[in-house]
Write a protein that binds this DNA or RNA. Structure first.
Lengths: 331, 331
DNA sequence: CTGAAAGCGCTTACAG
DNA sequence: CTGAAAGCGCTTACAG
């Protein structure tokens, strides 16, 4: 179509106003429009292959039926699994999703938020990086509804849906202790993001409750930029402390460290027991069955959309949801 | 902001027309506007925290600066890696990307295309499922620019960027033969999608060139819906033919089959040698280094965006790009 | 019952 | 040099 057909074209062809065409095509004022006219309008619309221009509609209705989603990195398996769930949930209620990856960079995060807001998204689902508090406050002041997912700032009064990271980490660590590990280690993140801090807190807490001394040599911290060779180097360092159990704070960390183990004469679970955060199908590639913490992603994604939709339709108090993780024992 | 501030608000405050405000804020007609007026406009825009409404702008300019991307499943590592590349490339030139997953379902694919077209995307990047030819013809007739990525229909005169699947598969199979495998098998797809058919053709072709008899028992085909337990079942069947080498037609197949091997007393590469389509970091989880076919995804994604942008700006002949894969030998 | 008119928030050809 | 006016393609309050 060299020129797209608009309501006006149909109106002209039928000999009525665009208003009437709009009513008919949107099935409004059903009883009040002559059957024959409605019929003709539908006929012509069909024949001309009319497609409503959603941009014009969005402008007029001040509603774009679009949700913006910002994750750390869409190519990360955790993010992409979540993205898929959000896509399905959003599509199911007539919304389209636009994605962005922040790379844990607050500047990039801010730019993405602004782009999405300028594009008039009806709401946002965000996994913010460190240092994005101010932008969230801006959003609140601008009355743009949003839900934090996977991460949150305890200091801010916002909607959020997160895992009970502290509890999950506690359970995982306790599992290692109960399995007979005397030197339980952790590969953690050097980040102030609360969901990550909580994972380490759960670890320390479980050790303390089991009466184990806190040994700093058993925890190594890696940068959140997730460079595999850096993670492996840190892990090598950690192994010098001879742990017989280890908790990996994310699927990325698990992948890097387990692949390193493959190159070393250290066997799982004989020499070292392992628990991974996040369940991904790729963990099955490892020779030994791996115990892991499953996040109920489906539930989290659906909750995020549900909460967002509620807050888009009317002002209300912030909804907070902390969902327990599930320890999948496989060893 | 209870009400968003518009050009009109600034114009009123400064005492000029919205036209002038628009010119100044878009840095147009620079020389022709009094310095003081321009200054005041910028000042007020800043103070009122003006954000241009992209929806209004899109309507007027008939350009949304949006690219629609449809993949098979955004949660598939291959798709999400590609998505990330497309996102970066598009953002780099001022475009936003909206994603959709077709699940290899032509009905769903068609609906996504229509949604995106109604939203007035400036162009599309598509990995179409079987049976989507008609929709592509519709797009051509409607003058909506698009580029096929990863897949194509040889019968259609469209832009596309794909891997040389036949060549890559041929090389991979030849590698197994040259490594001394006498019974090279393949786990392939029962699909008519040309990029998948080509992978099998490459396999047969390499066998023929090496003077090996074509043994149907050495090829098993799995459904493109990628159900892991089905793939494993097919693989078990295949193993009865005692192959000593095997080519996996995708990363999903590789993951399922390798995880199955972990449960069996079959060792890699001692009992069976392996080559996987697609390089993913999760392959490192396997105990043995794996030879694989690397698709130059960065190059493919960038090319797709470049071609799309060219075709969005002016009518021109279809661009076809077939990029060679790279065999990464690790065994 | 039916439809003309106004307006969403922008851009830009055009007139002065 | 400067800016009023028209218009992108819709929706809907309102008047007849």
């Amino acid at each position: 179509m060299s020129r797209k057909v608009s309501l006006k074209d149909i109106a002209k062809e039928v000999g009525v106003s665009t208003a009437l065409v709009s009513y008919v095509l949107n099935n409004l004022k059903e009883g009040r429009i002559r059957k024959e006219v409605a019929q003709r309008i539908r006929e012509v619309a069909q024949r001309l292959n009319y497609r409503p221009n959603q941009v014009a509609r969005s402008l007029k209705m001040r509603k774009t039926l679009t949700i913006g989603v910002i994750v750390a990195d869409i190519s990360n398996p955790f993010s992409s699994a979540l993205a898929r769930i959000l896509e399905d949930e959003a599509n199911g209620i007539g919304y389209t999703v636009i994605f962005g990856s922040s790379d844990e960079n607050p500047g990039k995060f801010n730019r993405l938020v602004e782009t999405f807001v300028n594009r008039q998204v009806d709401g946002l689902i965000l996994s913010p990086p460190e240092g994005a508090e101010q932008k969230l406050l801006d959003l609140q002041q601008a009355d743009v509804p949003f839900v934090l997912l996977d991460r949150y700032y305890p200091g801010l009064d916002t909607n959020y849906v997160i895992l009970d990271n502290l509890g999950a980490s506690y359970t995982a660590t306790k599992h290692l202790i109960d399995s007979g590990c005397s030197r339980v280690a952790m590969v953690s993140y050097s980040s102030e993001l609360v969901h990550l801090v909580d994972r380490e807190r759960g670890y320390w807490s479980a050790l303390a409750d089991a009466g184990r001394p806190a040994d700093p040599a058993l925890v190594t911290k890696v940068s959140i930029d997730n460079k595999p060779h850096m993670i492996r180097a840190s892990f090598d360092e950690l192994l010098k402390a001879s742990p017989d159990g280890v908790l990996f704070a994310s699927n990325i960390i698990a992948t890097s460290c387990l692949s390193r183990l493959n190159q070393l004469p250290i066997r799982v679970p004989g020499d070292i027991r392992v628990v991974c955060f996040d369940e991904t199908s790729s963990l099955d590639l490892f020779y030994a069955p791996l115990t892991c913490i499953r996040q109920p992603m489906q539930q989290m994604g659906k909750a995020a959309i549900d909460i967002l939709v509620e807050h888009m339709s009317h002002e209300k108090e912030a909804t907070r949801l902390k969902i327990p993780g599930e320890l999948i024992v496989r060893d």
